[in-house]
């Protein structure tokens, strides 16, 4: 591994370790409101200052990382897995199955999501623990975002289906399903990897939007979406550059993650 790769790995490990050891690194709990010092500037007690309710920003950043940085990749993996399953099956099977799957994907993309999510919210109980809310949020994100990826993967699979090597695999007596998973799927890995990388930051941000529908991560748990949402208000950054900390950490995390884990994709 190159030096750059090694340092990316170390950095990544440090971020994950810091988020897991949030309880030791941050002096305060993420939910304790130091109501006498709201909007504090960075100081010894609060290395990154406090938010509007006097909560320690460092603690919220670290706990937020734990929530988002670990779950967003998991949700992205779920989403890509669904895209692959549906896309490859459709692309390989062709015929009515393909048409049905792609019609479903089109429908999925064009559905009035807002209303469907509202229905989902209406069906869920009001009392869910914050941790359950996180799980629901990311499961939803993962489960609902398969359609665009499935379209891309379908066209990839349909092209590969007519490739020489697929024909040869069949001529060697390879059964259809095995042909799909053992021969065609590995060729779609770069496509799937791309889907995966796009999905992570998207999920981290859409989590905050789901929060608008009562489906996001519930108070008082911090999340990256919530922390990043503070920056959407440009007037605030000028007065408090510490607000950029989550954005910087997210960028570093994604670059390192990609650097370390995308080596296998040639």
């Amino acid at each position: 591994m190159t030096t750059a790769g090694k340092s990316a790995g170390v950095l990544l490990f440090a971020i994950v370790a810091a988020s897991l050891a949030a309880g030791y690194l941050a002096p305060a709990s993420y939910e304790t409101q130091f109501r006498e010092s709201p909007n504090a500037s960075p100081c010894r007690q609060f290395p990154l200052g406090t938010d509007e309710l006097g909560r320690d920003r460092l603690a919220r950043l670290l706990y937020g990382s734990r929530v988002s940085l670990l779950l967003a990749p998991a949700a992205a993996a779920l989403s890509v897995a669904l895209s692959a399953l549906i896309g490859i099956t459709a692309g390989y099977a062709g015929g009515w199955l393909e048409r049905a799957a792609m019609a479903a994907a089109d429908l999925f993309v064009s559905l009035p999501w807002l209303f469907l999510l509202l229905t989902v919210r209406a069906l869920l109980p009001l009392n869910v623990t914050p941790w359950a809310s996180i799980l629901i949020t990311f499961l939803l994100l993962g489960a609902l975002s398969w359609a665009p990826g499935a379209r891309v993967i379908r066209s990839g699979a349909a092209a590969l289906k007519h490739s020489e090597f697929a024909l040869l695999a069949r001529a060697s007596g390879c059964p259809g399903p095995r042909l799909l998973w053992k021969h065609i799927l590995p060729n779609l890995r770069p496509l799937m990897a791309a889907q995966f990388w796009i999905a992570i930051p998207m999920f981290i941000l859409s989590e905050a939007n789901l929060g608008m529908l009562g489906l996001g991560i519930a108070e008082p748990l911090p999340s990256w979406g919530g922390l990043l949402a503070e920056i959407q208000d440009p007037g605030r950054i000028a007065g408090n550059p510490v607000l950029l900390a989550p954005a910087i950490l997210l960028t570093v995390f994604l670059s390192c993650f990609q650097f370390v884990f995308s080596k296998g994709d040639r």
Partner: peptide, 24 residues
């Protein structure tokens, strides 16, 4: 036919590089 292909009757295809799976 699946039992026959590859066991009873085999195929050596035309262009070696496109007949081999690039990802495997």
């Amino acid at each position: 036919m699946r039992g026959i292909r590859g066991r009873e009757i085999s195929l050596v295809p035309q262009s070696p590089h496109s007949a081999l799976n690039p990802a495997l």
